[in-house]
Simulated assay, not measured.
Amino acid sequence: MRWFARRTRGNIWDEAIDAPLGDIEAAARIRAICDAAAASAADSAQPGQRERYERAARVAMEIAMKIADDLMRDDAVRRIVDLCMKADDAKTAQILFRAIQAGWVREAVQRDYPALAQ
């Protein structure tokens, strides 16, 4: 009886995107990806968790590059920087930090992660 069999739920970053996303939908998807991958990022010392975090971050970065609105893109990149810092991936976080253009977003990231400003 397969009717009641549980389906394994996939990761949100592995789900196919059917149509082009608008800026608001893209930002919401990045937020959902970062929230879902936070546990993997915190446990990134384990091999399987590190792979999940890297896949999630890669997909989130690809979506963020397609956001046209500068402030929405900067906010999305900030969320990805938070994810990277949870995983102790300072190299990627620093590269993303340099991509943030809005001054107030950069200042907020600098307050949270002073090491990135160097």
Rank of each mutant, 00 (worst) to 15 (best):
D35L: 08
A26Q: 05
C34H: 07
A102E: 14
R31H: 07
Q118W: 08
A93Y: 08
L71Q: 13
G22P: 03
P114Q: 09
F97P: 06
A57G: 06
E62G: 15
V59K: 15
Y113D: 04
D82Q: 07
D82L: 00
E62C: 05
A16H: 10
A108S: 14
R2D: 11
R2G: 13
P20Y: 00
V109M: 02
K91D: 15
G103V: 06
A5T: 04
D112N: 08
R55K: 15
R73F: 02
W3G: 15
R29G: 08
D89G: 09
D23F: 03
R52A: 08
P47W: 00
I12Q: 02
Y53I: 06
C84P: 12
R31I: 00
A42V: 13
V77K: 06
I95Q: 10
E51T: 04
S44C: 11
A39N: 01
D69P: 05
Q110V: 10
F4T: 08
D82T: 00
I80L: 06
A32F: 01
L21G: 03
R6H: 13
A38D: 11
E54Y: 00
L71I: 09
E51N: 04
A68R: 10
V81F: 01
P47I: 03
A41Q: 10
A93V: 07
K66T: 12
R79W: 07
D70G: 07
A102L: 05
P47D: 01
A87D: 14
R31F: 05
A19V: 12
Q101D: 10
F97T: 02
I24F: 04
L96H: 12
A28D: 15
R7N: 09
A76V: 05
M65W: 06
E25H: 00
M61T: 13
K86Y: 11
V77I: 15
A37R: 06
D69C: 00
A108L: 03
D88C: 04
A93M: 04
E62D: 15
E107P: 02
I67S: 10
A45I: 05
E62I: 03
I100G: 05
K66P: 00
R73N: 03
D43M: 06
D69Y: 00
D75Q: 13
A108E: 14
E51A: 10
R52P: 05
Y113S: 08
